[in-house]
Design a protein around this nucleic acid. Structure first.
Lengths: 198, 198
DNA sequence: CGCTTCAGATGACATTGTCAACTGGGTAGG
DNA sequence: CCTACCCAGTTGACAATGTCATCTGAAGCG
């Protein structure tokens, strides 16, 4: 038997899944609460039983995505068969993969919900902490945050520009992987120069 | 006497200005053609005489912004009183300034219009060519594109994460300026390591 | 068995993007 | 100067959408 609470939770998940489909297909504009309801087999008003408004629904999708990324990064960090540099490369590759396969979701994950500023940043926190731990294993605790920030932002920029069509191999003579790889190689270099001014 | 063409061009500019105001105030969602028309002193249908649809209007705002940035970068490059490294720093600082002062416009400049993919990338071309010329003066023609790409994407990532609230000094122990400054210092370093794999 | 709670359904409304039809003053050709 | 065209701008209309108030029915609880 399914209790009412279980049924409601299932509906919520179905709504999120339907909304994610629409998001991938056509961006946030394509996510209409009516269509989300229809695909989830409920009426147009049903989503309001689970999300305050459309923006909350979208934010929930992004939060869920960050949760998955965080879990993946944690698993990476726990994988004893990988070198620190490999963990770093794979973690970054995971983000690049999301950006390419699901650009709208990727954009959403780095958006700032007007109704609840900081909600997405909080959701990203765990994932970024895991990432920082990986970087720390490579460069030491002292510089982990600075180099982590440099890597995180750089990768985000590479993906963002590729998604917007402004990063082309012809123009920059480098692929996203090469740009990221260059940075990783630099950070992983034991003879890397000291952090400027530090 | 103002000719009909001049009047139409003036209306177009007024529409763009009104739309930019709304964009800054509340993002693309807040840009309604009705309000744009009202602020420009015309009716709700008038914008359609100048722009195919709402997305075209938004794209035009982004294109215009890229034109101004490109002009600014060109002026920077022509300024004989600046060192190559200073030109680079100022050019990047200009982008950071836009990201902070007008985050919605900044996001628009790095978006990819669904109706005309590549339109924004084309608009950004001139600005990025100017930027590349500045980088080339610093690192030589051979590596200009690669290092230019690295700098451009990194700065974009720093701004993007700051705009989304995911770049905080507490978390990364570095400000946007410091992260960018570290990269610039690295690239400007005459003893910088060779580009990996090149 | 009756009462409460709550997921879901439905009707309604304001807002908005968009188009078709219309208007009026500039503009070119005679 | 006259006339016919052009086209920026207006207005009416419509469908789609977010959102709310209200209603319904079944699950849970005494």
């Amino acid at each position: 038997m399914i209790s009412r609470a279980e049924s409601a939770a299932a509906t919520r998940r179905t709504l999120l899944g339907a909304a994610a489909e629409l998001l991938d297909a056509g961006g946030t504009e394509a996510v209409t609460l009516r269509e989300v309801g229809a695909r989830a087999g409920v009426s147009r008003g049903a989503p309001y039983r689970h999300f305050a408004d459309k923006e909350s629904l979208l934010t929930a999708i992004g939060v869920e995505a960050w949760r998955e990324v965080g879990a993946g990064t944690a698993a990476l960090r726990a994988d004893a068969g990988l070198s620190p540099a490999d963990r770093l490369r794979r973690g970054l590759a995971e983000l690049i993969a999301i950006g390419r396969a699901r650009p709208h979701l990727y954009r959403l994950m780095f958006s700032n919900p007007a109704g609840d500023p900081g909600a997405m940043a909080r959701a990203a926190q765990h994932s970024q902490d895991e990432f920082l731990a990986i970087v720390a294993a490579l460069v030491g605790d002292k510089d982990a945050r600075r180099y982590g920030g440099l890597l995180m932002t750089s990768v985000h920029g590479v993906i963002g520009m590729e998604v917007s069509g402004q990063l082309t191999v012809e123009k920059w003579q480098a692929t996203a992987e090469e740009l990221v790889g260059a940075l990783v190689a630099l950070v992983a270099d034991p003879n890397r120069p000291a952090w400027p001014g530090a």
